[in-house]
Design a protein around this nucleic acid. Structure first.
Length: 444
DNA sequence: TATTCCCGCCACCAC
DNA sequence: GTGGTGGCGGGAATA
């Protein structure tokens, strides 16, 4: 039916179909390769659409690029740790201050360009252009225009910044308008011009559709006149900041030690900055990411970070893809976090769609690995509250993959047969609620 | 009308 | 040059 055509082709539904082919968790002895051209054929879509999905999924480390046309599927277990890193980055990099500055600037500047733009949308597009031009010219004369680099405009990095807003928001609600302005950067130059703003909104819808499908956010409807519509609400795990994360190395040394994604802020640090340098700061006035130690620079092609990598331990090489629909899952113990996972037909639940978020994050059937009780009567917390459940213990895997474990064609040649998983007390810093702004009420 | 976002052009980049 | 990748914005479907 024509009415369903657009919906059937939607990125959200496409993402759901994509996810239905892969398990929530990956067994330690599995390698799950995603071949993009096969997925495009399977889902009967242009490959361009697959990139949209993959780029956002990569931003939360559900998968990572392996080589041309191929990605490695990691499942959902890494998500809490990725979110912890993003939250930590928000607080350690001035990102939160930047967003506050943005909020204040719009509150105090009655002639704020964005307000003019938004107002002008109601008046007429042509008039909006005129207003923008005049104000932009004035501002250009007063301020140095610094644009955000192409790298920072990647869908994955936008996705990460979008998530950082949710993770530092007091109420977990972020209006798409505010997010767009944050992503545009530079509170004082012409970056809020209508065209760029609309483009950013489009991308945010793309991102939001994928993040919604994996249950991290959902569309938020409110009658509150103070909340700008449209808005999204965070529905993902509650995560803490990583204690003592002051240097780029702190991020590199957790999660995906060898990843090299163009869609990850962390990997940008690894490529572009000294590992010993402190975490780069966002300029609170422009939103541009800078570092005292080194300028954000174009990637050097001679970088010694390998483009062939396995982010996690892989104990045997299998080239199979497409997990059976009724695959059983017990729990996953990988680097970064160790989470109990469902022993159910996850892919079917994923495919059902409607209660996916509940399934992923609010299942009652999960038991922490360290729990001495196997009673299922325990009212388990969200799967992603696991850190808190275990008194802020994180599981770190001591056996990180070594470069020489892989042959030139990327096949894993195991030198270690057994994982050793140790407990590391995190004693996470708890963020004081009163420092967190609300991003929902932005220029209603 | 405002929101949502599909579609594909074409620039960029590694090889 | 070639093919993979993905930023970008027009404009149409949907609410």
């Amino acid at each position: 039916m024509k009415q369903n055509t657009r919906r059937e082709k939607s990125l959200s539904l496409l993402c759901q179909k994509f996810l239905s082919y892969y398990p929530i968790k990956v067994e330690p002895n599995e390698t799950i390769i995603i071949k993009l051209h096969q997925m495009a054929d399977l889902l009967e879509v242009e490959r361009r659409r697959i990139y949209d999905i993959v780029n956002v999924l990569e931003s939360v480390e559900i998968l990572s690029r392996y080589c041309k046309n191929q990605y490695i599927w990691h499942g959902f277990a890494q998500i809490p740790h990725t979110l912890s890193k993003l939250k930590t980055l928000s607080l350690k990099s001035n990102f939160l201050e930047y967003t506050k500055t943005l909020l204040e600037s719009q509150n105090h500047e009655s002639n704020d360009l964005y307000q003019d733009t938004k107002q002008a949308i109601n008046i007429g597009f042509e008039y909006a252009i005129q207003i923008n031009k005049v104000i932009t010219d004035v501002r250009d004369a007063m301020t140095q225009t610094i644009s955000i680099s192409r790298e920072e405009k990647s869908l994955g990095i936008m996705s990460q910044k979008f998530l950082m807003l949710f993770l530092t928001s007091e109420d977990g609600i972020v209006s798409i308008n505010f997010a767009a302005r944050v992503l545009l950067g530079d509170t004082k130059s012409d970056t809020t011009e209508l065209g760029k703003f609309k483009t950013k909104i489009r991308r945010l819808y793309d991102i939001a559709n994928v993040l919604t499908r994996i249950g991290l956010i959902k569309k938020y409807h409110s009658n509150d006149v103070n909340i700008s519509k449209p808005a999204y609400k965070y529905t993902g795990p509650i995560v803490d900041v990583i204690r003592d994360a002051e240097y780029v190395f702190d991020f590199m040394n957790s999660g995906n030690p060898q990843s090299n994604s163009k869609h990850s802020l962390f990997d940008h640090f690894k490529r572009n900055l000294d590992l010993q340098c402190s975490i780069p700061k966002f300029d609170v006035n422009t939103g541009i990411l800078n570092s005292k130690d080194k300028k954000w620079k174009k990637q050097n092609s001679s970088t010694n970070v390998s483009t062939r990598y396995h982010p996690y331990n892989i104990h045997q090489s299998t080239s199979h893809q497409m997990i059976e629909p009724n695959y059983d899952y017990n729990y996953y113990s990988g680097p970064g976090v160790c989470l109990p996972l469902a022993s159910a037909s996850c892919t079917q639940d994923l495919a059902s769609g409607s209660n996916q978020a509940d399934f992923l994050y609010n299942q009652n059937d999960f038991l922490p690995i360290s729990s001495s009780s196997s009673s299922s009567s325990t009212n388990q917390m969200d799967i992603y509250n696991y850190q808190q459940y275990t008194n802020n213990y994180l599981y770190y895997n001591t056996n990180e993959p070594k470069t020489n474990d892989y042959s030139m064609d990327g096949q894993y040649e195991p030198t270690n047969s057994i994982d050793e998983t140790i407990l590391v007390k995190t004693d996470c810093d708890l963020v004081q609620e009163n420092v967190l702004p609300s991003f929902s009420s932005f220029l209603n």
